[in-house]
């Protein structure tokens, strides 16, 4: 049982949890994740420690309200409550070395996973530029990012309430690819890294490929155990089947079979089902 020390909504549909989990805090490295089970009848979902204090034994999770479990967490958990299970750290840490000039991209809440990695790369002597593309009310970690890396670029997209959510998401994809192209045309990067929906990861990869810049991506297939026991998280990389939870979650974007990943995660179809406005009502109405 892991106590919630702090809980706050830091942006629309983005909740910050500071949790006492010393077993994770003492070991976690950038690129690793945890599996959380918040409720007695609940499922296990993967989330990423964004910050941690090894001595005080806490980690911070920032969770995007996406479906049932994350919505229940946002609505039902209070400061002082306990989370039933946090297993981890899981997955492999990202490679910690001097790559040179790095462009680290986060789409939507993906930026929270970029944060610990980008920060550590910068501290190691890399020149890191972070790019966050999201809807305007969903900006998170702006100040933290600016402090942590060489340059933080924030690109926001307005939500057009007259249009469907998937339509709105297309604008994010467009802005992302345009901005990446603009950056790569003007500057030389030694590495591009990205966290975000797999459709956006592929769209960005298509641009990066034109410039021949190496690219890594954190993949987000569905996970159950997170310890290599079920194969739910399988992806094809370099023609081989890999389990993202133990072989990843970070992979060489040039080797990933994006078609299969996208059809397996069905990210956009899920998003479609959630009427954005419904959600805003839930949040404004205090979560009942």
């Amino acid at each position: 049982m892991y106590k919630i020390l702090e809980k706050k909504e830091i942006a629309m549909r983005n909740t910050w949890y500071k949790i006492h989990a010393p077993h994770v805090a003492r070991k976690v490295q950038p690129g690793q994740f945890v599996i959380v089970r918040a409720f007695k009848n609940g499922e296990r979902i993967p989330l990423t420690p964004v910050m941690w204090d090894r001595e005080e034994g806490w980690i911070v999770l920032i969770v995007f309200t996406r479906g049932k479990t994350t919505a229940r967490m946002a609505a039902e958990l209070r400061e002082g409550d306990e989370i039933l299970n946090i297993a981890g750290p899981l997955g492999n840490p990202v490679e910690m070395k001097k790559f040179g000039k790095i462009l680290a991209i986060g789409a939507y809440t993906g930026i929270v996973e970029v944060y610990p990695i980008a920060k550590a790369w910068q501290e190691l002597g890399n020149d890191v530029t972070t790019l966050h593309v999201t809807f305007e009310p969903m900006v998170v970690l702006k100040g933290e990012m600016e402090n942590a890396v060489g340059r933080h670029i924030l690109e926001t997209v307005q939500i057009d309430m007259t249009k469907s959510f998937p339509e709105n998401m297309k604008n994010v994809t467009k802005r992302l690819t345009e901005k990446v192209r603009e950056l790569l045309e003007k500057e030389h990067f030694d590495l591009v890294f990205m966290v975000g929906p797999s459709g956006d990861q592929r769209a960005v990869f298509e641009v990066v490929k034109e410039f021949g810049v190496p690219m890594k991506a954190d993949l987000h297939p569905i996970m159950v155990d997170g310890t290599g026991m079920c194969g739910a998280c399988r992806v094809t990389v370099g023609g081989e089947v890999k389990f993202a939870c133990i072989d990843g979650p970070e992979f060489d974007a040039y080797k990933v079979d994006w078609d299969v990943l996208i059809s397996r995660s069905g990210y956009y179809t899920d998003m479609e089902m959630m009427a954005m406005q419904e959600y805003m009502k839930v949040l404004q109405g205090g979560g009942q």
């Binding site: 409720f39 009848n41 296990r44 159950v224 026991m229 739910a232 299969v260």
Partner: peptide
């Protein structure tokens, strides 16, 4: 092998036994 609705027995049984997915939606899995 990566088509949707192809499970490993471990994933299938874990969802059912450990997560009690057969009691969905009483259970979340």
């Amino acid at each position: 092998i990566l088509l949707d609705r192809i499970y490993t027995a471990n994933e299938f049984l874990t969802r059912i036994n450990l997560m009690k997915a057969y009691l969905f939606p009483e259970y979340d899995e």
